[in-house]
């Protein structure tokens, strides 16, 4: 059974000028332990997709099932209960904004567990710190006192602390420099290998291609291609995907850009 099953998802906002379609009949599924990259540029609807899965944006039509539960019909209280189980977690792009600046690392990490009312919080925190390779001494620092890489690892640790089966990552490495990007990607790879399903959402195919089993390309609110990574990259089918693949800068000098440009 799928861990996440999205069927014909539609999201539109009402505007005075009419409906603004953000997502159109998006279907996407994720099996346990699978890693999928959703690639989309500005305005493709990729953030809305993540927020809809998490119940922060209301779907206009379609069905989203998380671990067999149809979440579209959930009442706020039921949503809270589902979230408290910690099955799905989310890592934001910018840890400086997604961690409360006034809470210590310890308090930020403990929060999901405290919301659950879990026991043995300190042990779990120490375990997760070891896993993301952060020093215990950082526990009573504030986010502002950490480096960018440390902050993002705290954000990842926070998401992992409830032992989720699915983690949504919204541009998890875009704000980091190379050294930290490699560290966080390594961490995510370990996570993938340990059987956690990951849904990467990014504008930058180049930064997540190497870790995704499958790539779904989101273009103007529609998924135009959803196939294994190697196929998407080596033999893109949709014109937009072709343009995208050609645009990603790579170290291969052989595919140095062609002067005739890229079809619109």
């Amino acid at each position: 059974m799928s861990l996440l099953e999205i069927t014909d998802l539609d999201v539109h906002y009402r505007r005075r000028t009419g409906r603004l379609h953000v997502l159109r009949s998006v279907s996407l599924s994720l099996s346990p332990g699978e890693t999928v990259g959703v690639i989309g540029e500005t305005g493709s609807g990729k953030s809305t997709l993540a927020r809809t899965i998490l119940g922060l944006v209301k779907a206009s039509a379609g069905r989203i099932a998380i671990d067999g539960t149809d979440v579209a019909s959930l009442k706020p209280r039921q949503w809270r209960e589902l979230r408290r189980r910690g099955v799905v977690q989310y890592v934001f792009q910018d840890p400086l904004r997604s961690l409360d600046p006034d809470l210590t690392v310890l308090d930020s990490l403990a929060e999901p567990l405290r919301i659950q009312g879990a026991a043995g919080i300190r042990d779990k925190i120490l375990k997760i710190l070891a896993r993301v390779r952060l020093d215990e001494a950082l526990l009573d620092r504030l986010p502002g006192e950490l480096s960018g890489g440390q902050r993002q690892r705290v954000a990842v640790a926070r998401a992992l602390i409830t032992e989720p089966r699915l983690v949504l990552l919204d541009e998890p490495v875009s704000a980091l420099d190379s050294a930290n990007r490699v560290q966080v990607l390594e961490l995510l790879k370990e996570l993938r290998d340990a059987g956690t399903a990951l849904l990467f959402i990014s504008h930058d195919l180049g930064s997540v291609a190497g870790i995704a089993d499958r790539i779904a390309v989101l273009y103007e609110g529609e998924i135009v291609e959803d196939r294994p990574s190697a196929d998407v990259i080596n033999a893109p089918v949709h014109p937009y995907t072709r343009k995208l693949i050609r645009s990603v800068p790579t170290l291969r000098r052989a595919d140095r850009r062609t002067p005739e440009g890229i079809p619109a």
Partner: peptide, 17 residues
């Protein structure tokens, strides 16, 4: 490190040489 990042996480992993 800069090159490794591309080789192991970027598109390069899949590109047919």
């Amino acid at each position: 490190l800069l090159i490794e990042e591309h080789e192991s996480y970027g598109l390069e992993r899949y590109l047919v040489t």
